[in-house]
Design a protein around this nucleic acid. Sequence first.
DNA 1: TGTTTGTTTGCGTCATCATGCAAGTGTATT
DNA 2: AATACACTTGCATGATGACGCAAACAAACA
Lengths: 122, 122
Amino acid sequence: MSPLQAASCCGPIDDLLDPELFKALCDATRARLVGCLIKCGRACSVSEVSECCSVDFSVVSRHLQLLERAGILTSAKQGRTVRYAVKYGPLCQTLRSLADAIAHYCPADQATPCSGGCCTPR
Amino acid sequence: MSPLQAASCCGPIDDLLDPELFKALCDATRARLVGCLIKCGRACSVSEVSECCSVDFSVVSRHLQLLERAGILTSAKQGRTVRYAVKYGPLCQTLRSLADAIAHYCPADQATPCSGGCCTPR
DNA sequence: TGTTTGTTTGCGTCATCATGCAAGTGTATT
DNA sequence: AATACACTTGCATGATGACGCAAACAAACA
């Protein structure tokens, strides 16, 4: 199959390769923010999160909004503070689905059946 | 634990959240190229790949180089043609490792033990 | 009501990057 | 050797985006 033919046959991989998720994580500052929130394991206010970054407070606020729109975080307003938390389940699910979708197209001669099956079709 | 404290305790998640991988996939054109190559399932020349995109040939060449540097593709030169292929194994492995690393920090009350364990620590 | 606190938004600036064109490099063919 | 082919690279341009500052907004508190 040629790449041109492959382009026209759609599958779950096309939705999972949506650039929005990757756009959210491609920035170093945002990656750091997400990393802190993941390791933190609880909902954090914007002020708290901004402590682990040297950028301006307003920048952190904007980054967190973007990460929420990308489906990585959730926000909950309590009084005047806004708490952001990682959506662990959906995030992991998306990454695993993407890995599965990619592995689905892996030719048999490249599949590694051993060690966790990183690339086992079906 | 505060986000600031979380920032200082390093783990595998910090390496896996490396923005380079996401930078490679955050562009719509590159995502499309990768999608075609994944579905294609074989090594393709630059000319072939450029057929499934409306952008200039040179742009595709640059994108493929970037994707190779990001560890998503491999290249092999045969005569005057260069063939790019998806590194299915490492790519899937990275995505799964990232999902595992994220799930590791998932608080117990958010874990979903059912249906494939999308967020099961360890 | 006025003030403080937590967060968002408008705006200007600078850097990065995707793109197309033209020119260059390297390899096969005649 | 000359030409054609596959690809890469230099350069200019336009668009996107990260950032900081200041102002605005909203909720609690005096």
